[in-house]
Design a binder for these strands. Structure first.
Length: 211
DNA sequence: GGAATCCACGGTGG
DNA sequence: TCCACCGTGGATTC
């Protein structure tokens, strides 16, 4: 797809341009075990239909992985934007700046990169993982996720075991931020579901460069 | 009976 | 060098 965005029928019906609610107003922190926490703000990005439509049209990459005997499709489409790259919609640039400002003290650095995943339907997923980037990342980090499109559940569970899996429903325009020790002591997943679900895009802002 | 969860498999890259 | 990581499908549990 080209990057020249043309308004579609959906946009014309979509209503107002995208607007970010101030983060301080309704952001709620859920404290987990071992110094992990999750901040949630449902409906952070209002009027996000336009952003969702734009993102559907970017140049998604299908990845493949060696898995035992055969090579298998990664069950989602991917795209990654480094810090120097222009994000495909100004609302995302705004979102990144707002997150950097809000978390400046706690994070001590800015959000830099934006990784995106397109989950086409309920068969698309991500397996349990923490964004640890291997053993080299031993300090705590933060990942801010803007969810667009069809609702999916983000499942969270402690890495140490103990089967209390938490579920956060992520809807259109919702923000969820994982911080503290979350990426080291907890793991998260978007599990496959047999329920009929439409496409969902997640935009993950991170404060460091992943090569 | 259907859906959610668990588990084992091994090549790869950090 | 070594070890954590990841997707699938079959088994098991709920």
């Amino acid at each position: 797809m080209s990057s020249n965005y043309q308004p579609s029928m959906l946009d014309l019906m979509a209503g107002p341009a995208p607007v970010l609610e101030p983060l301080a107003d309704r952001l709620v922190r859920h404290r987990l075990t071992a110094g992990a926490w999750v901040d949630v703000l449902p409906g952070w990005l209002q009027g996000s239909d336009e952003v969702f439509e734009t993102l559907l049209g970017i140049d998604w990459r299908a990845d493949r992985r060696q898995m035992w005997d055969n090579v298998v499709d990664v069950p989602r489409l991917l795209r990654w934007f480094g810090g120097e790259e222009q994000l495909p919609h100004p609302a995302l640039t705004e979102a990144k700046a707002a997150l950097s400002a809000h978390y400046a003290d706690e994070l001590g650095e800015e959000f830099v990169t934006a990784g995106m995943c397109l989950y086409r339907d309920g068969r698309d997923s991500v397996a349990w993982h923490g964004d640890t980037l291997g053993r080299s990342a031993r300090h705590d980090t933060m990942v801010a996720i803007l969810s667009l499109g069809s609702p999916r559940q983000l499942s969270l569970r402690p890495r140490a075991g103990g089967h209390d899996t938490l579920r956060f429903p992520l809807g259109h325009g919702d923000l969820i931020v994982m911080g503290g020790s979350c990426q080291r002591t907890w793991e998260h997943a978007i599990l496959k579901t047999a329920k009929p679900v439409g496409p969902r895009i997640s935009v993950q802002f991170r404060p460091f460069n992943v090569a």
